[in-house]
Design a protein around this nucleic acid. Structure first.
Lengths: 211, 211
DNA sequence: GGTTTTTTGTGATTTTTTTCACATTTAATG
DNA sequence: CATTAAATGTGAAAAAAATCACAAAAAACC
């Protein structure tokens, strides 16, 4: 099994490649992708090596072929369907986020416990939480996003799993846990900011001690 | 220098501790924090050891003291001020996100290039991009959040830096780069979802091969 | 107050990840 | 078509991170 940061990098390379394609680039070198993804060229080539991606010595990689190969590895050779639970500010923002559709990710429906949020007429229908299981089964959805408050997050996960969800991105500020075989990633916005605060403070200290 | 995932874990421990405090817990064991953060107890103790945090053998850690120590390490012993640029859906959601204020993070102002977004009367004033530098200087703000479209992200960063910003969380789907001594973390929502898709597909393959 | 049990704290070890070094291939050049 | 220059691909080495193993401390119990 490959590790998380390696897969994150593949995704970044692909992102850069899509950009290069719009600029009519035909080929690309590991050095270019390294710059775009903020890593070293060796790292790029090593990552490719792990997944059996090969280029042309001296000639680099063909942009089109590379995108296709990365899409295949990342499961993006078909549209991937998601559901989202929790139509607060963040949930609403994500449902409307144009970047998903552009990348072959489709949020099929949103869910909330609050009747004021329901709206079946919009581009993405917002449904009562009771319908979660039925919608997941009907559309055979494997992926979910959680944007409910912390106290509800684990419960929501436990509604999703038996209905067929196998991978979840959780934004609730608590580490939710799925059963064996279910992939859960937690993004905590406060944690991300605290991380930045820490490293800025740390670099301040380093600079002081260098004086 | 300590590594990113270690600091992320500290933040998670703190999160769990805040929860425990509301439940009137006085002490906590590394095993508890490990469960809450989804890591091993040894890892928790090792992390603490790195930062010189000590508990009481057989007695665990005092919740209050631990929170205080972690806050200090994470620079959360005072309110940390942020500015945010890009008042699209995600920007709006983040400006309104209650979890920040609760955690001692204050978004002082939002900025946008579009006059329709400006609104100086709200709880968080939304100002023209031209005022960015002035506001950063006046409030002596060191941290920024970028939620603009990809093509504008690097430019926005380059406006922030000379005004005094030293740490940035970027949600634009492109890896922006700051100068030496400036901390930049990139969160790409598509990448996060692709990561989940990858690992679900990978675990499917593993299960098939086990049959 | 001595014994047992439980938990921490941390060197040593293992595992994982990244970087290095360089042979190999291929495009370009004369 | 031979030579040169530039890029890949990958074992080997180094660095970083996680885990192990166990001594030390302290609470609990008799």
């Amino acid at each position: 099994m490959t590790n998380r940061s390696c897969v994150i990098r593949l995704s970044r390379y692909k992102n850069a490649l899509l950009r290069l394609r719009t600029l009519n680039f035909v080929r690309v070198f590991s050095e270019n992708l390294a710059d775009a993804a903020g890593v070293t060229a060796t790292q790029v080539r090593k990552d490719f090596s792990i997944f059996g991606i090969t280029g042309n010595r001296r000639g680099g990689y063909k942009v089109d072929e590379l995108i296709e190969q990365l899409n295949k590895i990342l499961g993006k050779d078909k549209i991937q369907k998601f559901i989202l639970v929790g139509m607060g500010n963040l949930g609403k923002a994500l449902v409307q986020y144009a970047g998903f559709e552009r990348s072959g990710i489709k949020i099929v429906a949103g869910f909330d416990i609050d009747a004021n949020k329901w709206d079946k007429e919009g581009p993405v229908p917002i449904c009562p939480l009771e319908e979660l299981s039925e919608v997941i089964r009907r559309h055979e959805i494997e992926f979910g996003i959680i944007t409910v408050p912390d106290f509800a997050a684990q419960q929501v996960l436990e509604l999703m799993i038996p209905a067929g969800i196998r991978g979840v991105l959780n934004f609730a500020p608590i580490c939710v846990k799925g059963p064996e075989g279910c992939v859960v990633n937690n993004i905590n916005l406060v944690t991300e900011l605290e991380n930045i605060i820490y490293f800025v403070n740390a670099s301040e200290k380093t600079q002081e001690s260098q004086q």
